[in-house]
């Protein structure tokens, strides 16, 4: 596969980013592969906050993947990708990469940062959710903080297990691996009631898993400010129904077909909409709604804001009404 065939055009989400070369591929499990990127000319890459992700272009699409390093003065970036055969194609494309291929990536983006005032970090990962959690653990070890980790994975199918075990010591004080639901429940229950006051909790994994962990923590008296979760492993959204959008100020009507986002539609029509994650997480692409009820599918707006129907995230949200009117 040549670099040219892989990168027909720079996707808006990775514009102003980096052009990197695949320098290493290593298989973690049957379905998870780690891919390392470096600058073709060598040298140091921009540092990043632990828990950051990279947006990687594949063909005409983009996907976000967590970086697994500590982020301190890196000379390469490593992501791990779970192959999802029924997904949008990103993970399959990532699994096809080989050493020497060139890819367009964004600069690292932080949406899951450690709390600077925390005296201890309780890290909870399930499956591929280990990737940003490993970043946090490495950063805690490097920066002289302490962390403990609970890692749920299938028997003999845990990615990065050896690397996590290697971190054990004064920084990573505990690594508890759970390979079944029952053992995880009791390990989590015990952990939630035994943490010293300066502890913050970080969780990454399937949405249902994260919701369960956060709910359990809240019921044990953890205030929201102590709870941090990485949402971009969010389930793939369905294609949605087609709808019409009326741009009131421009006097333009656009059709948004099923499977195409409002943001993509607006960009194709020549509109420049500030955006970042394109996953309904960062809140950059907010648009004012004048008329119609948006179908909110983002993780950014509060329930109250969603009910008001005066704003929407055009990257993932669609319309419940046949037509939406936007102040654009």
């Amino acid at each position: 596969m040549t670099a040219i065939a892989l990168q027909p055009q720079v996707h808006p989400a990775v514009e102003g980013g980096l052009h990197l070369e695949v320098t290493d591929i290593s298989r973690q499990t049957e379905s998870i592969v780690s891919i390392t990127f470096a600058a073709p000319e060598g040298g140091r890459l921009p540092s990043y906050v632990p828990g950051s992700h990279l947006v990687v272009q594949y063909g005409s699409g983009v996907n976000a993947y967590s970086l697994t390093g500590s982020g301190n003065a890196p000379s390469d970036y490593t992501i791990s990708v779970l192959r999802v055969d029924e997904g949008a194609g990103g993970s399959v494309a990532m699994h096809r990469l080989s050493v020497g291929d060139r890819v367009n990536v964004s600069r690292p983006r932080s949406a899951f940062a450690p709390a600077s005032t925390a005296s201890h970090h309780l890290l909870v990962a399930a499956g591929i959710g280990i990737t940003p959690i490993l970043s946090h653990a490495r950063a805690a070890v490097e920066r002289g903080n302490t962390a403990s980790m609970i890692y749920v994975h299938r028997p003999d199918a845990g990615a990065h297990v050896a690397e996590a075990r290697k971190l054990l010591g004064p920084g990573l004080t505990a690594l508890i691996e759970c390979t079944n639901r029952g053992s995880f429940q009791s390990v989590l229950a015990e952990a939630l009631i035994t943490q010293p006051l300066g502890t913050h909790l970080y969780v990454c994994g399937p949405v249902v898993f994260m919701d369960a962990v956060l709910e359990e923590a809240r019921s044990q008296g953890w205030s929201s400010a102590r709870l941090h979760s990485e949402a971009f492993g969010a389930a793939e959204l369905d294609a949605g129904e087609p709808f019409t959008v009326h741009l009131a100020r421009s006097g333009v009507r656009l059709e948004v077909p099923a499977g195409v986002s409002l943001l993509d539609t607006l960009e194709t029509a020549g509109k420049t909409i500030p955006n970042m994650c394109r996953k309904g997480i960062c809140g950059e692409c907010v648009l004012p709604v004048l008329r119609g009820a948006p179908q909110h599918r983002d993780l950014y707006l509060s329930d109250q804001e969603k009910a008001e129907n005066t704003t929407m995230m055009c990257c993932v949200s669609r319309s419940n009404d046949p037509e939406l009117e936007l102040d654009l």
């Binding site: 008296g221 941090h228 509060s302």
Partner: peptide, 21 residues
């Protein structure tokens, strides 16, 4: 990520869920 919790009632910081005071 934005927190989804509601702010505690005015004048009383003891929202449900705490395990001791």
């Amino acid at each position: 990520m934005r927190s989804a919790s509601t702010p505690p009632a005015a004048g009383n910081g003891l929202e449900p869920g705490f395990r001791g005071v």
